[in-house]
């Protein structure tokens, strides 16, 4: 309850993204689908507590798993995803990552939505503490922040 209120309060504080505005678009071969923050929050949430090169200490991230989003779009594991950020930076990621690991589209950091200044609104997070093999330069590049669009290629 308190968390929900905090979220609501934060949403009011960060007017950049209106609660109901679409923040993520997934473009598949046949169709594309857009999600608002509210929609992403209403999906099955996964919580990861992990570190990476861009946080000072182990941090709690929460959001829908990339796998669930892909499964909704009937995306196979052998394709490549092109993750595009707000500043048009893009990174190519094998979809298999989402099936092999608990990769999440984090929308909450320590229970609060993330502003653009703090790598929000969506930050792709890998469970690096849980799987030491992910603590590698290759996976660092896949931690796309300010995620805007996922192209399924």
């Amino acid at each position: 309850m308190i968390r929900a209120m905090t979220i609501l309060a934060s949403l009011l504080v960060f007017p950049t993204f209106v609660y109901g505005q679409d923040i993520l678009t997934v473009v598949g071969p046949d169709r594309s689908e857009s999600f608002s923050l509210a929609e992403l929050l209403s999906m099955q949430q996964t919580t990861l507590v992990t570190t990476n090169d861009y946080v000072d200490e182990a941090t709690e991230f929460r959001g829908p798993s990339l796998r669930s989003v892909l499964e909704d779009m009937a995306v196979e594991r052998n394709v490549t995803l092109k993750l595009v950020a707000l500043n048009d930076f893009s990174s190519e990621v094998p979809a298999a990552d989402a099936f092999d690991y608990n990769v999440i589209l984090a929308v909450l950091r320590d229970g609060e939505p993330m502003s653009v200044r703090e790598k929000g609104p969506i930050w792709v997070i890998y469970p690096m503490d849980e799987h030491p093999e992910l603590q590698d330069e290759i996976y660092n590049d896949r931690l796309v922040w300010q995620l805007k669009t996922i192209f399924v290629e």
Partner: peptide, 16 residues
Amino acid sequence: LDIAWSRVSVLKQGSL
């Protein structure tokens, strides 16, 4: 401004 600011915060946090 937000995007540029986020780059500043990347340089100030984590291992960088």
